Simulated assay, not measured.
Amino acid sequence: MTGPAIDMQQVGLTLGQTRILYDIDLHVAPGSVHALIGPNGAGKSSLIKTLMGQMPHQGTLTLTWPAEPGVIGYVPQALEFDRTLPMTVNDFMGVLTQRRPAFFGLSSRNTRAIDEALMRVGMQHKRKRRMGALSGGERQRIMLAQALIPAPSLLVLDEPMAALDEAGVAVFEELLAYWRRNHVTVLWVEHDLDAVRRLADRVTGLNHRVVCDGEPARVLSTEQLLTLFSAHPGMNTQATAPVVSGQTRVAA
């Protein structure tokens, strides 16, 4: 099933006395790979947490599904957990993909799905390895694997390439091609501009407000990047409008 369109209109976010996002207008086309770029602390992670319903916001955020609402997958920047826990990769995947406690074992259906997901990210040989013993890149591959179960229609990726080695990057690029073929809508926060140039359908430059938006060749020009990475939140790079009460809409 084709993923949803995402539309944000005048979305703002304020935490305490700090304004994080200013009047964001953003459209993500259904079934596209849409990258978010910008300097550290520019509000990129805050924007996707707002999309995931984890932060209050002003303005309107709408997901428009082509039919029934589908599965939303999420891969965070990093996995935070107690590394002394005796939790294997199998246990971790079971916790995330089934309702019954992992210590009851995996159902045959889940075992097959986990096998396929781990094989796709090249980690099937480490399913009995303790999670705390994995490298950062290996843990990131496991996070990509969990995003495959169940198959998402909308996938939100927060810097998924940050800890990956060269082999892991190749795995990620194969997954991105797979999601594109299956018309999954992908909203992807990324710092690797070369990867964005090669792999994204559209790019939005964010520095607390939308600074630039368009095809990668245009947004990733030297002039646009200089503007993006030197922009100040107070710059009037986008038209402002009165703040309205926050709404999140899901439409079919």
Rank of each mutant, 00 (worst) to 15 (best):
V33Y: 12
M52C: 13
T204I: 05
L118E: 15
S108Q: 13
V189C: 07
T222A: 13
S107Y: 00
P101G: 05
P4G: 11
L85W: 11
Y74E: 05
H183L: 13
Q54N: 06
A78R: 12
I20P: 02
V250T: 15
A231E: 13
I6M: 09
V11M: 06
L36Y: 05
T248V: 13
W65Y: 04
L21K: 08
L187F: 05
L26G: 04
K128Y: 08
M143A: 11
D23K: 00
A133V: 07
S221E: 13
A78E: 13
Q77H: 09
R109S: 11
E190L: 07
D192P: 00
D25R: 10
M52Y: 11
S230Y: 04
R139I: 09
A35P: 01
Q124W: 13
N236L: 10
R83M: 06
A177L: 13
L154T: 06
E223M: 01
A133D: 12
G31P: 03
L154G: 03
N236I: 04
L61E: 07
G53W: 05
H34V: 12
V244A: 10
G205H: 11
D23S: 14
Q224M: 14
T50V: 15
V75L: 06
L144G: 10
R218V: 12
E190R: 02
L26H: 07
Q54R: 01
P69I: 11
M87S: 06
T14P: 01
I114L: 06
S45Q: 02
H34Y: 15
V28F: 03
T97F: 01
L157Q: 02
M87K: 03
L79G: 00
A162D: 08
M8C: 12
Q77D: 12
Q224Y: 00
A163F: 14
R100A: 03
V211Q: 04
L144N: 08
P86V: 13
L47N: 05
T204L: 09
V186D: 02
H125S: 13
G122L: 14
L154F: 10
P56M: 09
L226N: 15
R181M: 03
D23F: 02
A241W: 10
K128V: 12
I6Y: 02
F81G: 05
V171K: 04
